[in-house]
């Protein structure tokens, strides 16, 4: 305990101010922002509430991670919330299908900031063994931003725990001093991810311009074909 306390204080120390050897464990000379950062991040990283949200095989390993043998509660993450409004972390645990990505994006938009996404398993990262399937999204990062990737099929609970520790490290690195690392304190509401549309195939509204371009290209190609056909028949 004293050891971790010492480290904690050492991290806080302002590098320019020398502190006598004997007093280092009792005194911290720091800037206000740094002190706030570390207290704020310490609180956040030790009480990440994941969303109770299982997609496929990986969800079972997620449950195993939450159970007694691996005990996710050691990281303050045992409170699985069924509602996105109360969750900080979305563990995308399994294959994301085109049909399912619509609710996932909606759930992501409903989560309160700061929010994090952990892509668990090969499928959530890039489609995995099912990548070629017609109903499979090649990775959830095609639609929503991902903070940590945990590879494996499925990742063992140890791997997931490692991913969660990485998530804590990421949170530790965020600072009020750097607005880019905490965009949710910026001006105005943050932008929502547009919800995909289930058309003839899944459509990302952000790609509407691409769709128009391709459609125009298809029409002009068809016109060129008929024109050349007419020219051929004319000859």
């Amino acid at each position: 305990m004293t050891n971790s306390n010492e480290n904690f204080l050492k991290e806080l120390h302002h590098p320019d101010v020398p502190v006598p050897e004997g007093m280092q464990s009792a005194v911290a000379v720091t800037s206000f922002g740094k002190l706030i950062d570390s207290i704020y991040n310490w609180g956040r990283r030790n009480s990440i509430w994941p969303m109770a949200f299982g997609l496929a095989c990986c969800a079972i390993e997620m449950i195993a991670t939450a159970s007694s043998r691996f005990d996710q509660a050691r990281f303050g993450m045992e409170v699985l919330r069924a509602s996105p409004r109360q969750a900080d972390l979305m563990i995308v645990s399994g294959t994301v299908t085109k049909k399912m990505v619509v609710p996932i994006v909606r759930l992501y938009n409903q989560m309160a900031e700061p929010k994090y996404v952990l892509a668990m398993g090969a499928c959530a990262i890039g489609g995995g063994p099912f990548k070629e399937g017609y109903n499979v999204v090649s990775g959830i990062d095609k639609y929503i931003p991902v903070d940590v990737y945990v590879p494996g099929c499925p990742p063992t609970p140890q791997a997931l725990l490692h991913g969660l520790i990485m998530m804590q490290k990421k949170i530790d690195g965020q600072s009020f001093g750097n607005r880019n690392s905490m965009p949710w304190y910026g001006r105005g509401p943050s932008e929502e991810v547009p919800v995909p549309v289930l058309g003839p195939d899944i459509v990302d509204p952000r790609q509407a311009y691409l769709l128009r371009r391709e459609a125009a290209a298809a029409i002009s190609a068809a016109e060129a074909e008929t024109a050349s056909g007419e020219a051929d028949s004319g000859v």
Binding site: D201, V203, Q207
Partner: peptide, 9 residues
Amino acid sequence: KNVTYPAGF
């Protein structure tokens, strides 16, 4: 992405 659309969509 893993998508195809009918021509002109």
